[in-house]
């Protein structure tokens, strides 16, 4: 019985981002759990979270919230970069590595 620790690579990436930011002093772990717990509670209002994909969707939303609240990432900047990544995926032929400028 060996379930993968992370079901999708982006789950692992999101996990590592929070761990790395805490290690670098961007926020403390109690601050993180407060923010993440609040997001989980909000997301849990509309449906029962199963602890899989939806857990990491909440994790990403909590990362965005704590980074913008701490002033280390602007919400506008994040939206623009997300759009840039989407454009890059759409414009890059299948099989080539996707990059943004």
């Amino acid at each position: 019985m060996t379930e993968p620790v992370f079901e999708a690579p982006w789950h692992a990436q999101a996990f590592a981002l929070a761990v790395s930011l805490e290690a670098g002093g961007a926020f403390t772990w109690p601050e993180w759990t407060q923010t993440f717990g609040a997001v989980l509670a909000q997301h849990g209002l509309s449906k029962e979270l199963d602890g899989g994909d939806d857990y990491f969707v909440a994790w990403v939303a909590a990362l965005e919230r704590i980074c913008t609240e701490k002033g280390i990432a602007g919400a506008e900047d994040l939206r623009a970069l997300r759009a840039a990544w989407e454009d890059a995926y759409t414009a890059t032929p299948h099989g080539e590595s996707v990059r943004i400028g």
Binding site: A8, W10, Q13, A14, L17, S20, L21, G24, A26, F56, V57, V60, L63, E64, C67, I72, A73, D77, L78, R79, L81, R82, A84, W85, E86, Y89, T90, A91, T92, P93, H94, G95, E96, V98, I100
Partner: peptide, 26 residues
Amino acid sequence: PHSLLPPDPELRVKALETLLTRKGLI
């Protein structure tokens, strides 16, 4: 055919990673 577009949260993780890397925070 272009590359498979990842789901929304994956694109948001990429945006975070790009921004925080550029700022030298990760």
